[in-house]
Amino acid sequence: MDVTAPHEPARPAYREGTEADVAALVALVDRAYRGDSSRSGWTNEADILDGNRTDHDDMLAVIGKADSTMLVVEDGDGVPVACFQLEHRGDAAYFGMFAVRPDLQGAGLGRRIIAEAERRARETWSAREMHMTVLSVREDLIAWYERRGYRRTGRTTPFPYGDERFGRPKRDDLRFELLVKELG
């Protein structure tokens, strides 16, 4: 039996997202995190939250936000395979809305993308730190970020229960934890 491991695009291309990308990016983010299709990747939240991870209006707001950029990562054929948001916040940059197509997860693409995000934050805004928030119950994901130099701060914010824009929780212990990395 021939089992082929997923492989990342040889030379992913990065470009700024536009309004024309909104539908594809919403589908990519939801596919990476929610529902049965997300289960083929390891970053899914399917056992924690139901519903969508984002929607058209939220993605459009991210794309149009001042001091922020939504980057689309494309394969060699111009097909979006990942995305992430960078937002300038004083001496720091915020990294969010990170999604990699589930069938490409675990092949090294995410590691390359986060390194590119850090480089851009340093070069574009002279950011000294990268910040992100992660659901504190996502121990496997937090461990992945820790292997990339991020540290848990212990600073948490409550999950917005009752606001379906964030999904429908399947548990009552959700909160977001701030992770930080010095960019040097």
Rank of each mutant, 00 (worst) to 15 (best):
V180H: 07
R148F: 12
A82K: 02
C83V: 06
R147T: 11
I142V: 13
S68W: 04
R168K: 14
M59F: 05
G76C: 05
L86A: 06
R120V: 10
D36K: 08
T157R: 14
M59D: 01
I142M: 10
G154M: 08
S38H: 02
K181N: 04
D103V: 04
G51D: 03
R111W: 09
D57L: 12
T133Q: 14
R147Q: 14
D172Q: 13
H56L: 12
V81Q: 00
D173Q: 10
L104R: 00
G96E: 02
I48A: 01
D163R: 11
I114K: 00
E19R: 12
R112Y: 06
H88F: 10
T157N: 13
A23E: 15
A32D: 00
V134T: 12
V79R: 15
G167V: 01
H131E: 14
D58C: 09
T43Q: 13
L71R: 13
G162C: 06
R112T: 02
E123K: 11
M97Q: 13
V29A: 10
A20T: 13
D67N: 15
Y94P: 06
L71A: 07
R151C: 11
G154D: 09
F95K: 00
G41T: 01
D172M: 10
G51T: 03
R165V: 05
L174A: 03
M59S: 07
N52P: 12
R175D: 15
G110Y: 05
L86I: 10
M70N: 08
A92T: 04
D77L: 10
V62Q: 11
L179F: 03
S136H: 15
A107C: 15
G64W: 05
